[in-house]
Design a protein around this nucleic acid. Structure first.
Lengths: 228, 228
DNA sequence: ATCATATCGTGAAAATAATCACGAATGGGA
DNA sequence: TCCCATTCGTGATTATTTTCACGATATGAT
């Protein structure tokens, strides 16, 4: 049996300085470094140099060294940084090493895909239950989950002390759903609706805005095309 | 019947200065401003002030004014910026006003969800066809599409002069699939695999890295929780 | 054992991004 | 009509992020 309580350190003895607030660029690079290290490890590499990582990240190698220093990963001259330590330490820092419980709201096509997405559990997110306001969807099975009616959401949040919600509802009801969740104790929202949510200052929102990604991609494509 | 050729301006007479390279932060804010303006417009607002947008974006209002200036949107003192013009101009700048053709590779749960996602066409991306290497999936219908075998991908790319690919294949084959696509003329990849792709310098990649988003969300949640 | 070289670590400098401060313009009310 | 409050526009300043420059250190070859 496994502890369910999220957000608690499972003191494993190797905790280092808790690392202060990390800025977005740093966090982004660290997450990518984690992936790179995992891949390198799978390919048998014991170490990675800052130059290797920097090359893949398209930044100066100094910056990678600074990032490593920020989270307390030490390298060795002429060798690099040990992949094992990169992976382990970054999983601590990025919060990937402990499970976090979440509820998923909205089981349309995107929500259903997220429910089936194996990556979540790999990255430490455990969907406690999935909900939909549409009674036609309630009781349907999606992957390992049975869709529950919104009425039951409150008790699940309370029972598991869930603080994170994955929001995949239509744009039209995204804001009101977010308000409802916040009122019921949700402290962090991973928002997949194409709406910029307005929440109290003590609630964290990450907008996974596909429109934005698309805009950025197309903008760059056009720029490149124009250039050559 | 509709023109199919993508990437061509449908000269509508209102083209302004083509706007140089926009940095990522600017692009991000503009995309959000677009959404805000759409919502405000739906609620009947003729204008938005920089202060309103800044408040929703959590930045200084000056910055919003600078962004507007960057893309050539003018406001009026005491009134603000006309929502209609914000929407129209930003759709031009962000490339949302003309259709761009794309192929979608990988029709697993995420790929299928993307195929069904109505937001794409709203934001100017037209999926020409969807492909999967798994013959069990070929000929299945997903939304409005029939999954095609990878063998047919090349001819679709050539026929429609497709430059954009949406990549939703498993991590293990993401890199090789990307290489294959690039070799066949794809110039931009919207990557949903949890892998940092390596591509030639003249190819644009946008990594829609869910693990990264999750890491950022959880990191901030922990920070907040520790603070109060 | 010593040297040459690759790579880390870090303070200084440069580049980029965001905010501040304030003048200019506009619409509404006395 | 003229003033006042509001909001835009933008140069100067500050903060943040990235790169540069260079000394320190460990490994492998002679």
């Amino acid at each position: 049996m496994r502890a369910v309580r999220q957000g608690r350190k499972i003191d494993s003895g190797s905790d280092r300085a808790p690392v202060g607030e990390l800025s977005r660029p740093v966090l982004e690079r660290l997450a990518i470094c984690h992936q790179l290290a995992v891949r390198a490890g799978e390919e048998g590499a014991e170490n990675m140099s800052s130059a290797q990582m920097a090359n893949l990240l398209n930044v100066d190698e100094t910056l990678v060294r600074k990032d490593m220093a920020t989270v307390g990963i030490a390298g060795k001259p002429r060798v690099g940084y040990p992949t094992g330590q990169i992976i382990k330490r970054l999983e601590e820092v990025l919060g990937l090493s402990e499970y976090t419980d979440a509820v998923l709201i909205g089981c349309g096509s995107l929500g259903s895909a997220l429910l089936r997405y194996p990556g979540f559990s790999k990255y430490g997110l455990r969907i406690a239950a999935a909900f939909d306001a549409d009674y036609n969807k309630v009781n349907q099975r999606v992957g390992d989950y049975t869709i529950l009616p919104m009425e039951k959401c409150r008790s699940v949040i309370d029972t598991f002390a869930v603080e994170v919600a994955v929001l995949a509802v239509p744009a039209a009801v995204a804001q009101e759903t977010a308000d409802w969740l916040v009122a019921r104790g949700i402290r962090a929202i991973w928002n997949f609706s194409p709406i910029h949510l307005r929440v109290p200052a003590d609630v964290v929102v990450r907008n996974e805005n596909l429109a934005l990604g698309l805009a950025e991609l197309i903008h760059h494509l056009k720029r490149k095309g124009a250039k050559d």
